[in-house]
Simulated assay, not measured.
Amino acid sequence: MKKILFTFLFALLGVAFLATEEVQAQVGNKYYYKKTTPRRGPHNHKWVWTKRRQYVSVGLNVNAMNYFGDIVPKPSFWSTDLRFTRPNIGIFVEKKFRPQFSARLGLNWGRLLSYDVETADPADSHDFFRYIRNAHFRNDIFELNTTFRWDLMSSERLNKEFYQRPKQFVPYVLGGLAVFYHAPKAKAPETKIGGGSPDWGAGEWTDLQPLGTEGQGREYINFSGDTVNLHNKYSKVQVAFPVGFGIRKKLSNRIDIAFEFSYRFLLTDYLDDVSRNYLNLGVFGDDELAKAFHDRSLEGDRYATLEEMAGNGELYSLLNRYSYTGIDGQQYNTFDGFGSDPYIDPSIRGNQKDNDVYMLTGFHLIYIIPPHGVRCPVRFK
């Protein structure tokens, strides 16, 4: 009888022990796995996600930076001039919250650049207008971004400790929110609108936003006697929405490398300081520098150059020069349609219907910080 009783008590203790171990695995968060069906071998277990598997990584990204806006080869969303590709570098910290989901906080710097006389085809019936416009810009972008990554691989294959990441390439998509600071600049014209030597540093890179080169922040009285208030100056701090995709590869227990492409969709059309229409130059009053930046089509001896190009067939057509009286009473010269009086709607300087975009393409080097040190999985203990 005692033998039967002891056997029964040992059986109860065994069941209690197994039950306790099961609870610890699921609730106590002490172990990395829980038992499934009665044990039949040393590897009869199922991996489960726990907070201990979350980890933080830091990284460096080196990118090529391009933009789509008003100073590009074609009015197509994918159009950009690769000759003006510029570097973009950044640092970031990233945390893996779930097997497929991670969040990243990053800081980037990069430069955008483009020239009408380089990107526009002067012999094309559409592009030659932009060639005559003669605009250019340079813009340094300082960006703080938060992006979220979703790995396109099953959670079972990704549900690993940091040192057990899949060896295969892991594709992913990303999206998020960014805030950036920008200040478009251009080289100061070498002549005034009416001719003569300027009283500014010709050829120096000049901040365009304070000038309001499209009349921002100004008001004037038109020929009908009505007061016209132009739109406000754009902000140098803007919002962007990163959207993209990438592919990541494990190099070692603590190092990954990734290749990534992303668009930054913007709420501004002024990365290049070009967006709206030409204005009657009298709007700018005595601000000669703003006038010179607004209409650069006849800058210096450019008309003679364009005339020669038209004669050689290099320019699709040469627009007629036009002289008009500005609302300030002064005489101005420009091309037909470039803000001249006969046009009810001034000719287009930029396309305000499409906001600008910039793109990042490059490599990310990622170092994983182990949360609890490198530990041997429980099944090998």
Rank of each mutant, 00 (worst) to 15 (best):
D226Q: 15
Q54C: 10
I257H: 00
G373Y: 10
R39C: 10
K95E: 12
F169S: 09
I141Q: 02
A310E: 12
I348Y: 13
L13I: 14
Q164I: 05
K46V: 13
P99K: 00
K46T: 11
L319H: 06
L365K: 03
R379V: 14
V378F: 14
L360F: 08
W205N: 06
V93K: 05
D199P: 04
I257R: 01
N277E: 14
K30F: 01
W205H: 05
K233P: 00
H45S: 09
F17D: 09
D345L: 12
F335P: 00
Q164M: 10
S252D: 08
Y278D: 05
L315M: 06
D151N: 15
V170C: 01
W78T: 14
S275V: 05
N139F: 04
S155E: 15
H43N: 12
N159W: 01
K46I: 12
K95Y: 09
M359W: 03
P242M: 04
T305C: 04
N355Y: 10
D301G: 06
V374F: 07
L266T: 12
P371G: 13
F148H: 02
D151P: 01
F92D: 03
Q331L: 13
A64Q: 08
N253G: 08
N88F: 08
M309F: 08
D286Q: 08
N320H: 13
F68E: 02
A135Y: 09
A202F: 02
H136V: 08
L365Q: 01
E307G: 09
V72G: 04
R111P: 00
I221H: 06
H136I: 05
L319A: 09
S79R: 07
G362R: 09
N134V: 03
R86P: 02
R218G: 04
K34L: 06
Y115K: 13
T119K: 05
N355K: 11
L318G: 05
Q238L: 05
T191C: 00
F129Y: 11
P42M: 14
P38M: 09
V15P: 02
P166F: 08
V179H: 04
V23N: 15
I221N: 10
G175M: 04
L105F: 15
L281H: 07
V239H: 02
K3G: 12
D286F: 04
I344N: 12
N29L: 10
K381D: 14
N320M: 09
V48H: 14
S252K: 08
P73A: 07
N66E: 10
E219L: 09
Y303Q: 02
R133F: 06
K291R: 14
V237H: 06
Y67L: 03
R83K: 15
L289T: 05
R165M: 14
Y343A: 14
A123V: 08
T7Y: 07
